[in-house]
């Protein structure tokens, strides 16, 4: 198959979407593809990829927009056939600055000059990683407690033990998978014997700390959910759509699938 054959093109678009599904909104901790932020993916003849995306408002924080654009560029660049990636933010007050900055590989400060204050993008990235870790942990802890699992047992669970555990609802199972993914990132993968529940610095929880931990995590979640509920509502209102119906899945790109060329 040549590079330009329709099937090759569609397979590659599917690969791009699969990579984009690994990028989350820093505040909402949900994949950009599920949030409906990614509008379209265009493959250029010279193995370039353009990604059109949009945000809930014209005013959404420029550093968050920049972070997402840069994360998309990084994620899609890992595909071996990709030569360059051009994220294209639309309908945003700082669309030009974000698009130019990310495409040219500038850091946030350089892209915005005097408009930016001093927090480096990596510090922001780390801050949001921590929030995401904590938010995901709270959901799983709450699920385990709701299943009447004793605190003393919860704190001794290993990552492997947690992974093999059956939870009674599909939502909880999904939440568990999401937490485990973050937990592996913390220990660089592989450490199945390590404690499942640790703080964001890797320190295991003790039984008598669990209640206080839950209170602290609830604070993180209440703050994040405020943004989350607003952003989703704003996106839907801005583009007059219901909740996003979901981006095409891999199956849609398979020959004979819904989106396959006719």
């Amino acid at each position: 198959m040549s590079d330009r054959s329709p099937h090759r093109q569609e397979a590659r678009r599917a690969e791009v979407y699969a990579r984009l599904a690994t990028v989350t909104d820093p505040e909402l901790d949900e994949p950009l593809t599920e949030l409906g932020f990614v509008e379209d993916v265009t493959l250029g003849s010279d193995r370039t990829v353009a990604i059109g995306f949009r945000l809930p408002t014209y005013w959404c924080a420029a550093n968050f927009a920049f972070l997402m654009a840069d994360d998309m560029r990084r994620a899609v660049s890992t595909l071996p056939w990709v030569k360059s990636v051009r994220p294209e933010l639309r309908d945003h007050m700082y669309a030009d600055e974000v698009n130019r900055g990310v495409t040219q590989g500038l850091d946030f400060g350089a892209a915005f000059g005097d408009l930016a204050s001093d927090e480096p993008l990596d510090a922001l990235r780390a801050k949001f990683w921590r929030k995401s870790f904590e938010r995901r942990q709270e959901v799983v802890l709450a699920a385990l407690l709701a299943q009447s699992i004793e605190p003393a047992r919860i704190v001794t669970l290993t990552i492997g033990g947690l992974e093999s555990m059956q939870l009674s609802s599909p939502d909880w199972a999904r939440a568990k998978a999401r937490y485990v993914a973050r937990r592996h990132e913390l220990s660089d993968g592989g450490a199945y014997q390590a404690a499942a529940f640790v703080d964001a610095d890797g320190r295991p929880l003790a039984t008598n700390e669990l209640a206080a931990r839950m209170t602290a995590l609830r604070g993180v979640r209440l703050n994040m959910e405020f943004n989350s509920a607003l952003c989703r509502g704003l996106l839907a209102a801005r583009y007059q759509e219901g909740p996003p119906a979901g981006e095409p899945t891999l199956a849609d790109f398979m020959p004979g699938g819904a989106l396959a060329p006719r």
Partner: peptide, 17 residues
């Protein structure tokens, strides 16, 4: 344009909640 976008954003708050 900012004036337009500002009220559009308020309007989205209104519709969203």
């Amino acid at each position: 344009i900012h004036g337009k976008q500002f009220i559009d954003c308020f309007f989205a708050y209104h519709n969203a909640l």
